[in-house]
Design a protein around this nucleic acid. Structure first.
Length: 260
DNA sequence: TCCTATGTTGTCAT
DNA sequence: AATGACAACATAGG
């Protein structure tokens, strides 16, 4: 589920269902998703409520009344589900926050790559994880500055959460497709104009996806998103989309539009 | 059996 | 100290 637009959707869901309600407990079904001791989480949750939520990149932070924040990260397959009846418990519910009104908020995560953590406050956690500003809230100056001194290929830099928090695999590919830049291009070969273009495409794509509430089927048909398959037709030039690996991640691009 | 999937992190080398 | 490359983590489906 997990790039910036999906997590923004989860935040809206969380706000609409789970804020300002007293909780009695948190049930841990699989402690592998915990980054902290189960006792620590239980202690924070017991008879507390979530008072506010904030999102930075792919992280969702939920503050409690006791000067503490619960940190959610959804990995590749995580999401949230609010439900009441026991038979509605979603499969792969790894943690259940129990509200006094009888409802539960499930932290659902098929693969175990999602994580729940407890932190003193957001600023501390952000620093500890070297998390940058949120990609959508970030100015070009900050983006430019975060890239300073980096030398690798542009695509892995876009996915680096210390540079632009919230960009993941498909959005990085989409940005470079839109800008007609080959994903393996070293940063040093990109001039200021290209970086400005990357920044503006990043904003444009994020804005579109957030406005669509991360509903992938509603993304424009000329996005590379719908053609992430080797041999698929490039929506720009009609050529063939190619698949390669960059820094261990599948990368889709059009060799005709995006020359190295 | 082997590969893939919208992610992060620890380790090792430079 | 920083940066980059890669394996590992875990599960289901083709």
């Amino acid at each position: 589920m997990p790039e910036l637009p999906e997590v923004e959707r989860l935040k809206r869901y969380f706000d609409a269902t789970s804020l300002h309600q007293k909780m009695s407990d948190v049930i841990i079904n699989d402690s592998r998703i915990l980054q902290c001791a189960a006792g620590t989480l239980k202690k924070v949750i017991g008879q507390q409520k979530f008072t506010s939520s904030h999102r930075i990149g792919k992280y969702l932070f939920a503050e409690t009344g006791s000067n503490t924040v619960i940190v959610f990260h959804f990995g590749m397959t995580g999401h949230l589900k609010y439900f009441k009846a026991e038979e509605d418990t979603p499969k792969y519910s790894r943690a259940l926050f129990k509200f006094n009104n009888g409802f539960y908020l499930a932290f659902v995560c098929r693969r175990m790559l999602g994580k729940i953590d407890v932190a003193e406050n957001i600023a501390t956690y952000k620093k500890k994880k070297k998390l940058s500003e949120d990609a959508f809230a970030m100015s070009f100056q900050t983006f430019r500055n975060n890239l300073k001194g980096r030398k690798s290929a542009i695509k892995p830099l876009l996915q680096d959460q210390s540079i632009a928090a919230g960009i993941g695999n498909w959005i990085a590919d989409e940005i470079l497709f839109k800008e007609k830049i080959h994903p393996a291009t070293p940063l040093s070969q990109l001039d200021e104009k290209s970086l400005e273009g990357i920044y503006h495409s990043m904003r444009k794509i994020l804005k579109m996806a957030v406005n669509k509430n991360a509903e992938a089927s509603e993304y424009p048909s000329d996005y590379l998103f719908h053609h992430r398959k080797a041999g698929s037709k490039c929506p720009q030039c009609g050529g063939k989309v190619e698949r390669t690996k960059i820094r261990g991640r599948s990368t889709y691009y059009c060799p005709d539009c995006q020359k190295l």
